[in-house]
Design a binder for these strands. Structure first.
Lengths: 342, 342
DNA sequence: CACCCGTATCTACTCGAGTCAACAGGCCAG
DNA sequence: CTGGCCTGTTGACTCGAGTAGATACGGGTG
């Protein structure tokens, strides 16, 4: 009875190739190609029907490797991130996968684990696999472009503020984003605002630190205490402890990532202080986690989906000969309760 | 000066092929292959040196598509998850990527977004790309195996309790895990323990519900209220609101995922109740997020890394003809503060 | 000196799909 | 009735790498 509903599957041996379809449909292999790809030559409707039928009955699926070999494109993009289990990169990866899938591209993922050697290895690996482009969220503020250059693959640098000539890059305006967050905190009447700054392998100064400083200067306020630590929950936790212990304890803190803020909240809670009453907090990223912390975090949201789309578009464009460009996206302040708003 | 440190790159046109290397080294293309792959025939040391030199100078990188076509294997694994931005799957993906990379495999990622059609499309896509195996975390408790079967690819079903004959599967003992968590809650003296149960596309009963019920029965306690909602933060949030509003409000709740628990915590905080004082909470997964919620969550930890390794090993084994098997991993209770422990 | 054998290398075919030049057949104009 | 043209179809070559089978070479033995 089952055999009546499902077409007889040619279980025989090995995968079905174009040749099998051609034989079954009584046509040449070229026609099968024309039908599958809708060109470049036209096929008579009756013939097309026969071929479609054969494809369905035999369960034919074109071999992507052969296709990639002939066309010189694997319809695949590579994404290298420091750590996919970081919610921000997870969100970003999802957006990239969506954007890539919409254009028929698959996504190969690589984690560099904050390790430069691993980042390089990943890139080389992707290059050997003939990916059509790679999206790189480097562990460095300023990535070493040499590997990318020698690999001769279209690429997009993510989260880069600096313009790297000859490369596509996508980033957000970190300084402006930090500024609106700090200004919002100032608007709540805070005069001593600390900074929990994330650190990176390279020593370059991050735009968020600049934005924090600018906002304070413009308001004529003194700089609050700064603590440098990792862009992680534990990093934020220790940063929080140190900030709370500092001689002039701030009444508000700007954290440079949501994860840091989450860790920071824990430190504040453990110290028995109320948020935002005794300690206001604002952070950066706009991840889903920030909405469900307690209290919910006021955070600077990055337009992740738009950035992912732009990154994929740049890659696809590059394979068509478009020239690289540098795009900076604006951020928006997402006001919740950790800052003091009701 | 730069040209002194880096070898003269044959920038000419197009990528370098085996033929170019052969010509440059003055040997045949076969020898180049033998050198690159270390076999299947031996090459004289002097010749090998010449070839290695040519490879370095020309920057030769074997074309993975051609290799995949000839060998029928792309050294690539596919991973299909409902949503990579779910911290649990993000963590899992990272572990899978690590395990795959260690064996020289690349990982292609696909999100199904809780959508069965998209899940199928992803699988078909991976099949066409000649991946050597796919890891599937289905949106269904009981996945439809048909797509996998017709695709004829080694596969591993993730998070499956049920044994699907002819398929590899990897899961945790959901019932046992839930039971230890609920037993722990009972140990704190709770007699009315609610359940925030996650739902799935299929209607099958989840082991966690079974475990919760078993623990209560064994202790001679009545069943607390159950609320069904999505396995997400918003899902946990609404579940929390409904549980708090139920006629016999529980004094403790077991949530079937960390994300639900996070949402639930928010609902409890908003209601002005203290955790664990007025409402104790325990959950399932053991994600990093659970450690930094307020209060930190007592949660049932899944051995993610071990499961990922086993899954990848099963796939690689399958391509060597090993027969499929079903593995269930044990969970461990990670005690923190949300249950009432100090 | 002819013969055999082992080693090193090369030639040529293969994988599956894309596509172009060549070709068959039908139709209409002259 | 023939020539030309348009439509549909086909055979054959190509992409780059793996490798079996053929071949060249050198050294030792009878």
């Amino acid at each position: 009875m089952d055999s009546m509903t499902t077409p007889a599957v040619q279980a025989s041996r090995g995968p079905v190739t174009r040749k099998d379809v051609a034989r079954y449909a009584g046509v040449s292999t070229a026609v099968v190609s024309y039908v599958v790809n809708g060109g470049p030559k036209k096929v008579a409707p009756a013939t097309e029907a026969k071929v479609q039928d054969a494809i369905r009955v035999l369960g034919y699926r074109p071999n992507a490797a052969a296709r990639a070999l002939k066309l010189g494109s694997s319809e695949t993009l590579g994404l290298v991130v420091p750590d996919i289990s970081n919610p921000f990169f997870a969100l970003f990866s999802h957006a990239v996968e969506d954007a890539a899938a919409a254009l028929g591209y698959a996504l190969v993922l690589g984690n560099s684990d904050g390790n430069l050697a691993k980042e390089r290895r990943n890139i080389r690996n992707l290059a050997a696999r003939q990916v059509d482009g790679v999206l790189l969220a480097s562990v460095l503020f300023e990535p070493d472009l040499e590997v990318l250059e020698t690999a001769e693959i279209p690429s997009v640098l993510l989260n880069q503020e600096r313009d790297a000539p000859g490369f596509n890059s996508i980033g957000v305006d970190l300084a402006a984003g930090a500024r609106i967050a700090v200004e919002h905190l100032i608007g709540h009447g805070h005069t001593n605002i600390g900074l929990a700054m994330g650190t990176n392998v390279s020593g370059a100064t991050d735009g968020r630190e600049v934005g924090w400083r600018e906002a304070l200067q413009e308001a004529g306020l003194p700089e609050g205490p700064i603590v440098y630590s990792a862009f992680t929950r534990p990093g934020g936790y220790t940063a929080g402890q140190r900030l709370l212990a500092s001689v002039n304890r701030p009444t508000a803190i700007f954290a440079t990532s949501d994860m840091q803020a989450i860790g920071l909240l824990r430190a504040v809670h453990e110290a028995g202080l109320s948020v935002p009453g005794q300690m206001a907090v604002a952070s950066f990223d706009g991840s889903a986690e920030s909405e469900y912390s307690w209290p919910p975090l006021t955070t600077v949201e990055q337009p992740v989906a738009a950035m992912a789309e732009a990154a994929v578009a740049a890659l696809v464009g590059a394979s068509r000969g478009e020239k690289p460009r540098h795009r900076i996206f604006p951020t928006t302040l997402h006001v919740r309760q950790s800052c003091g708003c009701p």
